[in-house]
Simulated scan of single mutants.
Amino acid sequence: MARFSFLTTTDGARIAYRLDGRDDNPTIVLSNSIGTTLRMWDGQISALTQHFRVLRYDARGHGASSVPAGPYPLARLGQDVLELMDALDLARAHFLGLSLGGIVGQWLGVHAPDRIDRLVLSNTAPWLGPAARWDAPIAAVLQADDMIDTAETFLRNWFPAHMLEAADPVVDAFRAMLTTTNRHGLAGSWGAVQEADMRESLAGIARPTLVIAGEHDTVTAASDSVQMAKTIAGARLLMLPAVHLSNIEFPERFNDEVVRFLRAPS
């Protein structure tokens, strides 16, 4: 894999990113789930680069990016995307985010609509419960000896039983991402989830939007996606028979539907 490039944000964080595809194609920004790196999108790159230049980045606290002190405000995660776009002279771009990346996408759709062309919100939700519910998991991950138990909990929430039981190499790759994630980065990102409540704001998203849901998702319930698609004017809903990582379980369908949506006539 090619070397990363790096951006230093206005608050001093170092964000790792990479670009794939032709410079003269429109750009799509991909934003990853908590506990993963930009490698979670490897299965999308071949399909997307046929039509787009792809900008991937490791969210602060993850992968090759730095780990500032948390918690990370949701607005700060959104600003990281805007500063990346500014540094690359991108006035506008498509945006695809999954889980926490999808929460960032919601924030961008509300607060920076002039920078977003089309928006794909995958396996995400505008609100994931009262803030207090996150206090215990944040404390637990910070106090644990390692990330092993946290990783196994995530994997059970992300993949169907048949993949977990088969010692699937894909699951192993995500286990490696999780166990090498800095606990402070994970806890800081949970801070953004803890504060996020976009339920009242979603109706303000005016960009063309595709909502992708996992029928068996226990992290961000399919019912949340259905409601999001109803709330965002003109939004389309794609329901896949997936758990939480729809792009991993059903990459061909995921890729085809995303490309079709992004290339559809206005």
Rank of each mutant, 00 (worst) to 15 (best):
M1W: 09
F4I: 01
F4D: 13
S5M: 12
S5E: 15
F6G: 03
L7Q: 05
L7R: 07
T10V: 10
D11M: 02
I15L: 14
A16S: 01
G21S: 06
T27V: 15
T27W: 08
I28E: 00
S33T: 15
S33Q: 10
G35D: 00
T36K: 06
T37Y: 05
M40N: 02
L48Y: 14
T49Q: 10
Q50F: 01
V54S: 03
Y57F: 15
Y57C: 08
A59L: 15
S66H: 06
V67K: 10
A69H: 12
G70S: 00
G70C: 04
Q79G: 03
Q79W: 00
E83Y: 13
L90F: 08
L96C: 10
S99K: 09
G101P: 03
Q106R: 04
L108W: 03
L108R: 04
G109C: 08
G109Q: 04
V110F: 02
A112V: 09
A112Y: 09
R118I: 01
R118A: 01
W127F: 15
W127N: 14
W127T: 12
A132L: 08
A136E: 11
P137K: 14
A140V: 11
V141Q: 04
L142M: 13
A144E: 05
D145N: 14
D145P: 12
M147L: 13
I148D: 13
D149K: 09
T150I: 13
T150N: 13
E152R: 12
E152N: 12
R156D: 11
A166Y: 01
M177H: 10
L178G: 04
T181Y: 05
H184W: 11
G188C: 07
G191Q: 06
G191E: 06
Q194G: 00
Q194Y: 02
E195N: 05
E195T: 14
A196D: 01
D197F: 11
S201H: 15
A203V: 14
G204D: 11
P208V: 06
T209P: 00
V211Y: 12
A213F: 03
D217A: 07
D217P: 04
A222Q: 11
A222G: 04
D224G: 07
S225Y: 07
V226A: 14
A229Y: 09
A229E: 03
T231R: 06
A233H: 07
G234F: 12
S246Y: 08
S246V: 08
F250I: 01
P265K: 11
S266W: 13
